Simulated scan of single mutants.
Amino acid sequence: MTVRHDGITVEWLGYATLRFAGEDTVVYTDPGRYGVLTGEWEPDTDGVGHPPARDYRPEDADVVCLTHVHHYDPDGVERVANEDTTLVAFEAIEEGVEDRELPPLDSLPYEVVTVGDKDSLTVDDVPIWTVPAYNEENGPHTRPDGTPFHPEGFGCGFVVDVEGKRVLYPGDTDALGPHQNVEVSVFCPPIGPRFTMDRHEAAALAAAMEPELVVPVHYNTFSTLETDSRGFAADVAEAGVPVALDER
């Protein structure tokens, strides 16, 4: 299913992969991982809501945004990018590529722009802002010793202006206070319960932000991310915020 909203489309392709498109602009976030773009993904549990895997290679991206090294998949980037695509990548990704046996960003055949977590820029006529993304120490989304899965400075989220509509994918993060002040038309929160804000925290954040539409992502890709997406939708709708589940 493709979600249509006021002249743009938002499509969740699985895991953290989002496609935002207007009439002349196509932007992706975090393409790939876990076989969601190669046709190899299979759910751990039958009946969970998630886009089906498919062999997906449109090579239509104007911009690809990469939030952190966990979501950096060179094959996924290749499937959506072309020779004119620009990669906008969080600056700390390069520090983690060797440990994860990934190619350096500057070895890819695309223009690469690196960003911090509080930047603003325009790439190929697409205005982009970054926002902090992290788990708070000793918070609910940490290891048993209290260390975050995503410490501050490890990644970022992206606000992308797609032909006049601002879309926020906050990355792998807790629901942080500054997020409430981000004005967007479409909010795409992660709602898997372990490594990011859970569905209850995401619903409360959506209610505080009051976007025009909420499209949740980053859930049910594997067992650790399983959650009740319909419960999330009910909570968001109860707060008076429209919500769409991009599941098939």
Rank of each mutant, 00 (worst) to 15 (best):
D172C: 07
E94D: 11
W41I: 11
G153Y: 10
G146S: 10
P189K: 10
T38N: 09
D75N: 04
G157E: 09
V36H: 13
Y56R: 08
D73S: 06
D161M: 13
H150L: 06
I128C: 04
D84Q: 15
V36M: 11
G14E: 06
D106F: 14
R33L: 13
D228T: 03
H5V: 07
A202R: 02
L213N: 07
D6T: 09
A53Q: 05
E163W: 10
E94P: 00
T147D: 13
R54P: 00
G49Q: 01
A234L: 07
H141Q: 07
V77M: 02
V64P: 03
R19F: 10
D99H: 09
T122R: 15
V186N: 12
P242S: 09
E152D: 10
M1D: 05
T85C: 08
V159F: 04
E136P: 04
V80R: 09
E238A: 15
P242A: 11
F158L: 11
E212G: 15
G146F: 12
P43I: 03
D24M: 14
V131P: 08
G47L: 05
D99W: 12
H150S: 12
E11P: 00
Y34R: 13
V217N: 08
E23C: 02
G49K: 14
P140M: 05
T85Y: 08
M1R: 14
R57G: 00
E136W: 05
E238Q: 12
P43G: 02
T114I: 03
N138G: 07
E163T: 09
R248H: 12
D75P: 00
C188A: 14
P144R: 03
D145L: 14
E101S: 14
H200I: 07
V113Y: 00
H141A: 08
I8M: 13
P190R: 02
Y72E: 09
T227S: 06
V123G: 03
F232M: 01
Y28W: 10
G231T: 00
V160H: 05
P140Q: 02
D75S: 07
F187I: 05
Q180C: 04
G146D: 13
V80I: 06
V217Q: 06
S185C: 05
P144V: 05
P178E: 14
D172V: 10
A204I: 00
N82Q: 05
N82G: 15
F195V: 06
S229P: 01
V131E: 04
T122S: 14
W12D: 05
M197G: 04
P211M: 08
G153F: 10
L102S: 09
S120L: 01
S223A: 14
V115P: 05
T196K: 03
F149L: 08
G96H: 13
P52V: 11
F222W: 07
I128H: 10
D174E: 02
R194D: 03
E98S: 12
P140W: 03
E95P: 00
H71P: 00
P148C: 04
T2K: 15
G49L: 15
V80Y: 08
E83T: 07
N82M: 04
A202P: 04
G146I: 07
E94Q: 15
E183Y: 00
T114Y: 00
F20K: 10
T147H: 12
V69Y: 12
E201L: 05
P193T: 01
P103Q: 14
G192Q: 06
P170G: 13
P193R: 03
R79A: 10
L18D: 09
G7H: 14
